[in-house]
């Protein structure tokens, strides 16, 4: 059957739409081979039958199989590209090694170029109003509040905020700080959010 392999490929990647699979170069090579043989057969038949029109239907069927293969392959690559795009937003510009292994070399190059593009775009944002860029990946959803109330669980010492203010973090002291500044400390367990 024509185009069987490519459907298999698509079905496999469809099975887990949220995560990215390893790039299946072996399968893709087989599909390309199939396309190559179809093309050669078509070429031979087309050359042989310039006056005899009986083979034209065969040629047409092979040709549509070829086009289907091509289309499905493109769909596969496109869906992977979309997934890689979300990887950039989730992981940042440096991929963890286990995710890096899943990408092909070309895909990785695309990823790094996309990441450079995004970074330079983010740096250019808001320059006319005096900001030196905005990190768009910080809040993918609009945050409920820009500030949050936290209580300090350990004697951490001084914390310098991005606007130059210095906050003394002592055990059991309570603060109302910009959420962006505390997120990392909350994750480290130095601060605890009060709800």
């Amino acid at each position: 059957m024509f185009a069987e392999k490519v459907i298999e490929l698509l079905k496999e990647s469809e099975r887990n739409p949220d995560t990215i699979d390893p790039f299946k170069d072996e399968k893709i090579r087989q599909i390309l081979e199939e396309m190559q043989t179809l093309f050669i057969m078509n070429m031979n038949d087309a050359n042989a039958t310039t006056e005899n029109k009986s083979l034209w239907t065969t040629v047409q069927v092979r040709h549509s199989a070829l086009e289907r293969n091509k289309r499905c392959l493109l769909a596969y690559l496109y869906s992977r590209m979309e997934k890689i795009k979300t990887l950039r937003w989730e992981f940042g510009s440096v991929l963890p090694p286990d995710v890096r292994e899943l990408l092909s070399d070309d895909e990785y190059e695309w990823f790094s170029r996309y990441s450079t593009n995004l970074a330079s775009y983010m740096r250019s944002l808001g320059q006319d109003i005096g900001y030196s860029g905005i990190d768009l990946t910080e809040n993918l959803r609009p945050p409920k509040a820009l500030y949050m109330e936290v209580v300090c669980t350990t004697d951490y010492g001084k914390l310098e905020l991005s606007d130059g203010d210095v906050v003394m973090l002592r055990r059991n002291s309570r603060h109302f700080l910009p959420a962006a500044e505390c997120q990392t400390l909350v994750r480290q367990g130095v601060l605890k959010q009060i709800v």
């Binding site: 820009l146 500030y147 003394m168 002291s173 603060h175 109302f176």
Partner: peptide, 30 residues
């Protein structure tokens, strides 16, 4: 009120004059 207007604050409970002094000395930067 402070939450509504995004006024960042540091809250320290104090019990006496000595605590007031230490609380102020620890947090008076900036």
């Amino acid at each position: 009120l402070f939450k509504c207007d995004n006024i960042s604050y540091t809250l320290v409970p104090v019990g006496g004059v000595a605590e007031l002094k230490t609380a102020y000395e620890e947090n008076n930067e900036e």
